[in-house]
């Protein structure tokens, strides 16, 4: 598929990954919510950067920062973290 479009494979793996996390942390919904919050913040900052076109010299939350936040959240859940790394560009 063209690089500008999300392929069904990418969408499906994202869906099953989100489901996996949701199920893994059924007893700790606050961890799952924190994970959603990290992704939400990342997306929001990316949009803000796009809108300001970097004029303020800010690049928003980087993927490295997202990864380290998720890493501290998923402590002891190495499989989830490894899988998360597969979604990140230049991981």
């Amino acid at each position: 598929p063209p690089a500008s479009e999300t392929s069904p494979v990418e969408f499906d793996s994202a869906i099953s990954y989100v489901n996996k996390i949701k199920n893994r942390f059924l007893d700790h919904p606050e961890i799952y919510r924190a994970f959603l919050e990290i992704l939400h913040t990342y997306q929001k900052e990316q949009l803000e950067v796009k809108e300001s076109r970097g004029s303020r010299g800010s690049s928003g939350m980087t993927e490295d920062e997202v990864f380290s936040k998720v890493a501290s959240l998923f402590k002891g859940q190495e499989d989830l973290l490894a899988e998360f790394g597969q979604f990140l560009p230049d991981a």
Binding site: A3, T6, S13, A14, V18, N19, L36, H40, Q43
Partner: peptide
């Protein structure tokens, strides 16, 4: 079954966009 809230869907969207950019940067 997939019982997704809007927040869940937004996480799916963010993850699949990341994966798309990863593919774009690799090709």
């Amino acid at each position: 079954s997939y019982d997704f809230t809007p927040l869940d869907s937004s996480a799916v969207y963010v993850l699949s966009s990341m994966a798309r950019r990863r593919r774009a940067s690799q090709s």
